[in-house]
Every structure is written in C-alpha cells, then in structure tokens.
Nucleic acid binder design. Structure first.
Lengths: 201, 201
DNA sequence: AATACTTTTGACCACATGGTTAAAACATAT
DNA sequence: ATATGTTTTAACCATGTGGTCAAAAGTATT
C-alpha cells in the first residue's frame, strides 16, 4: 500500500465512522460515505470489499479503542476508591469526546450481536481481579462488601445514560444545550459521591 | 372500520412492533412485517399509508404505554423512599416483560430524534414535583438533599443498563442465560440498597 | 338477488442500493 | 521513453425496496 493509498483508506475510515455512527448500519449509505470521504463509490469497494467489511473495520477500530483503556484502569495499582474516581473521570471524559459511541454500540449490539462478542473476548476484561480487590478491602474494613457485577454495572450505567438518553433527559428537565453541558460536567462529582456513599462501611 | 378490519390492524401493529424493535426502522422490511402479520404487503399500505406512518403508530403505542405509568408513580402520595422502592420494582418488571424497548427507544432517539420529543412533551412528566418532595423531606431530616435530575437519572440508568448492554455484561461476567436472569432478579434489591444508602442522612 | 361498500390480493412500477467492470490516470521502476 | 503495477473514475448491473393499482373476494344493505 502506497502513501496515497493509506491516506485514502484513512479518509474512508473516518467518513465511514461518522456515517455509521450517525445512521447505524442499515441506515448508512455507501454513497454517503464516499461523498464524505470525497471519493468515488467504486473506490470504497476497492479498499473495503463490501459494506459489511467496511463496517467491521470501523467497528473494530472503535471497539479496540474502548476496551484496552478500561482494562488498563481495572488493573492499575490503586485503592478501590481511587480507582473508581479515576475510572469515572476518564470514562466521562472519553464520553464527552465521543458522545455517540454508546448508542452506536447498543444499536450494533441489538441488530448484530455476534459481531461484538469477539471484541469483548479479545479485550480480556477480567472482573475477578476487581472482585478480589473488593473482597480484600472489605476484609480490611476499608469498604463494605459488594458484588463487582453490581458495582461496575452501576457505575458504567450512570456514566453512559445521560449520553444515550440525552434528548429525553434534557427535555424532561427542561435544559438548553449549555445547561446540559454543565449538567454533564456536574455528574462526575455526583456519581463519585453516589458510589462512595454506597460502598462506605 | 369493521371488526375484521380492527383485527387485521391489530395483527399488523403487533407484527410491526416485533420487527421494528428487532431490526430498527431502517432494518425493518415491509415485506417481513406483512409476513409476520400473515397478510399481503399491499394490505399494510391499505391500513397504514407508508412505512413512516406505520412506524409512527407503533412508536406512539410504545411511548404512550411508557410515560403514563411513570407519571402516575411520580405523582403518587408516598414517602420518597417508598416511592423509589415502588418505582424500581415496577420499572424492572416492565423491563423484564419488554427487554428490547429501551434499545429501541435509544436507537430511535439517535436516528430520528424529532419523532420522540412530542411524546415526551405530551407525557407531561414534571420533575419539579419530585424535587419539591426531596426538598421537603430533606428539610424534615428524612433524607439528605439531592438533586432530582441526578437521583432520577441514576435510578433509571441502573435499571435500564443491564437490558441494553446485556450481551456485554453477560459475557464479561461469564454468565449463562439462567444466571443472567437471576442477576437481573437480584438487581431490584441491589439498586434499591444502592440508592437508599446514597440518600440516607 | 342486486347493489354498494370494505377488505384482500397478485402483479406491477419506479427507484435506490450495494456491487462490478473496463478503462483512464497516476506513479514507479527499468 | 517504456513497461509495470497501483489508484481512481464513469458507466453499468442485478436486486431489493417502498409503494401503487385494478380487480377479486367478502360483507352488509336494500
């Protein structure tokens, strides 16, 4: 692959990412992706044989950015409470930079569940490490005993929800865009507080 | 509209609901909906002029089942902690009966945000009532002062997440289907506990 | 039984979509 | 300059899609 080739390929991936995330797999049009990338539709098929393959490439990129960061954080050497604080901070920041990724994932998860599992497996997230840390710290009286599968789901749920359900939340609580931005910002401290209260002995 | 007509219309709505929820708007095929309903494709257009109109009808039904129950609960005359317990119980039960609705809503929200807002507005959810109740009870020392827009989002997020992200959660924590069912069941007490700890003075 | 109305169907249409192809444009090496 | 390989394009193609139509089947009314 020449330099020009790599540049084009990159343009395509960026364009495809935008369109797939905005429209979903079925809603995305190869023509629109080509337009976004400033190229011919035939060239899409030259670089990525089919829509499915192109989607795979996009999804793979998104997914493989997602999990390693998470894994790294889970395996860091920090006390649980600090780890949670760090996780929430980094996770929310990542979400603010890519607010549509979660909805994209959920959509893919629902319409094409298989394509996802391999990335999860490859990610090698190991919740047993966290459970062990929880149990250790609980035994030492630092936190109360909780189940990792609840704690982790709760934290992630609270982080993600305001992004995937933004129109609802924003509307029900009658916020304009600036106010919603501020709301998102305020959630970091709020979630942390919420979680810490629930695991404090 | 004759009786036969109403029956057919109902069959169509049920079939359309299934297909739209499973495949999303773009992924759904009028032919497949017709097949599911056991009728001719032309008959779909006889009852619902277009795909968009049919979707509107389905979505309207789903949405108008969702909000009134919520509204009623929010306006019930109960102490906040009881109200929360009731809400979580009823909400999780509704989710177990319709596990794919949230992903459907999120998907619609992302690809067709406008179509949703009118239902939210029509629902007339008023979070100020809850905020008032929180403030009252906080003043009386029953709970600590929290913001409704955080508390409510947190509760709903924790309820919904295991349904929209089921494949991920189930896989990461290595559960089979029965175990996941049990996990979902265990969340009722877990979420309530989590929330109560966070609002207790 | 005849009429008028509604429901249902099969055949059809225009068009958008993902995908192909053969040739042109470009780049690289000899 | 020429030959070789790569990148890009315009023009097509086959198929699937939402949607239409005229006629048939069914139902109720007189």
């Amino acid at each position: 692959m020449t330099l020009a080739g790599e540049i084009t390929e990159n343009h395509i991936l960026i364009a495809a990412r935008e369109v797939f995330i905005a429209k979903g797999y079925e809603g995305a049009r190869m023509q629109e992706i080509a337009d976004h990338a400033g190229i011919n539709k035939a060239l899409l098929h030259y670089y990525f044989r089919s829509k499915e393959k192109l989607f795979e490439a996009v999804f793979s990129e998104v997914a493989s950015n997602l999990f390693p960061a998470m894994k790294q954080m889970l395996e860091a050497e920090l006390e649980l409470k600090e780890k949670i604080a760090l996780f929430i901070r980094i996770y929310l920041k990542a979400l603010e930079e890519n607010p549509f990724i979660p909805a994209f994932i959920i959509n893919t998860l629902n319409t094409n569940p298989d394509s996802f599992l391999k990335y999860i497996k490859k990610a090698g997230l190991n919740p047993k490490l966290i459970q062990k840390q929880i149990d250790d710290e609980a035994a030492r009286g630092i936190i109360r005993a909780v189940k990792a599968e609840h704690l982790m789901v709760n934290i992630i749920a609270m982080c993600i929800f305001p992004f995937v359900a933004r129109p609802i939340v924003q509307n029900v609580f009658d916020m304009n865009n600036d106010e919603y931005q501020a709301y998102l910002g305020s959630r970091q401290a709020e979630i942390l507080d919420f979680v810490l209260k629930s695991i404090t002995v």
